[in-house]
Design a protein around this nucleic acid. Structure first.
Lengths: 235, 235
DNA sequence: CCATTTGGTCACATCTCGGGTACAAGAATG
DNA sequence: CATTCTTGTACCCGAGATGTGACCAAATGG
């Protein structure tokens, strides 16, 4: 349970003491309550017992590794945001982690400010996840009328484009794998290529981006998938 | 049934007596008629029998919980606004509630003024559903005489066409699924094809649209259903 | 009992979406 | 810098969704 008015609680699972203490100090300085674990078993236990609001999780750990932790928690119905920490060049792992239910990832070494921004973003996310009208930039997506407006003008979207944009907005600031997008927007049953996501992204960009080949909103995350960024909101 | 001109009726389903009475008093002071239920079964019953204009619904309830109430009512075609009340830290639940058809939510403890503002807002949007005469473009629909006039001239509508137009006007600007339309206009018991909706839409268009194949009012929303747009009034 | 109207279904005509393919462009890797 | 993998994008076309005319059954009224 979260106490009204109290600081958000964050669990850091990381075995490298330098990184672990660095995170702890910075997060505490930013006003969060921090618990730490230096290996997997204890991490899972703390997550279960204390139900933190967010978890920062290293992939390479002694004992249970990050994937296993992630999967276990999700299987047990825990749905707090999980941000994974990964060494450079482990993109394949990142895809795996995201598909197992992680929400985002950071590649070491990372800027502490980027981390803090992501954390802030996640802790705020549930509140705006499913409102009737979501605005970003000069546009607003109306889930009731199924319309997208820019400066009050209708931008025609096909059903798939609308569904994709809707899903991306619900997960603003998160890196999403193509699998995640397919499951959410196409439905897990349907069998289509991952390239269909790319195609839909392209056509959506051509309608919402000023310069579709230099997207400001719907960014490509190489080897992973896509991320919707809203500069107004994410800072 | 709703009496034109009378105060809007609000149903409060909430088991905590302190909150329940607080809501009741405040809403009555603001001029609404209030019914209350302290558990789910009774709440659903009252909603069915009295068809309030708006429901304020706690999620945690003895008996049927808020989600179940919400789903049941929506499945039966009730479409009054539902505002959910949720304890802090249940934001994940909120998403679920909104998916089940709730329209808005408030996190306890909430300011009574915020609540009143939301309620007023919802009721304003739905009020025109109760008007005797609704006008759009150069036409007006008279619910008492069951006539549609354009520039003072009668346009002959069949009963089904009238019912459809009436329902669409009550939900002006909202994309409606064929199922919603069937439930509301045909009645949930009757078994007819979804295509009947299409057919009725076509014949209605031929009577109210300038160019029936390029509709300005009664728009198709691909893969969903239809939406009535009134450009004068909306935005 | 017949005439009329309503509205539901069917069948067919359109139209739209979006998947696949193919190739271009770009990014990573060594 | 060359190679290889990833992503962007134009194009075509089939499947499915929607529009629409025709027909018919049921209801209604005289």
């Amino acid at each position: 349970m979260t106490n009204p008015g109290s600081a958000s609680r964050i669990l850091v699972i990381e075995d490298d003491p330098a990184i672990m203490f660095g995170l702890k100090d910075n997060l505490e300085m930013a006003g969060y309550k921090v618990r730490t674990a230096i290996e997997g078993e204890l991490g899972v236990q703390l997550a279960r017992d204390e139900r933190p609001d967010l978890i920062i999780l290293d992939i390479m750990l002694p004992g249970l590794n990050g994937f296993e932790i992630c999967r276990e928690l999700r299987e047990d119905g825990f749905d707090m945001p999980i941000v994974m920490l990964t060494a450079l060049g482990q993109e394949a792992d990142v895809v795996r982690g995201l598909n197992l239910g992680a929400d985002d990832y950071l590649t070491k070494p990372f800027s502490i400010n980027v981390l803090l921004a992501r954390v802030r973003n996640f802790l705020r996310r549930y509140r705006q996840a499913e409102l009737e009208i979501v605005s970003f930039g000069s546009m607003e997506l109306n889930r009731t009328s199924k319309e997208l407006l820019r400066d009050g003008r209708v931008i025609e979207l096909t059903p798939k484009e609308f569904g994709l944009l809707d899903y991306l907005l619900q997960n603003c600031g998160r890196a999403l794998t193509r699998d995640q997008i397919l499951n959410a927007v196409w439905g897990s049953d349907l069998v289509v290529t991952q390239r269909s996501v790319d195609r839909c992204v392209t056509s959506l960009r051509s309608k919402i981006e000023e310069k579709p080949n230099q997207p400001k909103l719907l960014k490509t995350v190489q080897k992973i998938g896509y991320r919707f960024d809203d500069e107004e909101r994410s800072r």
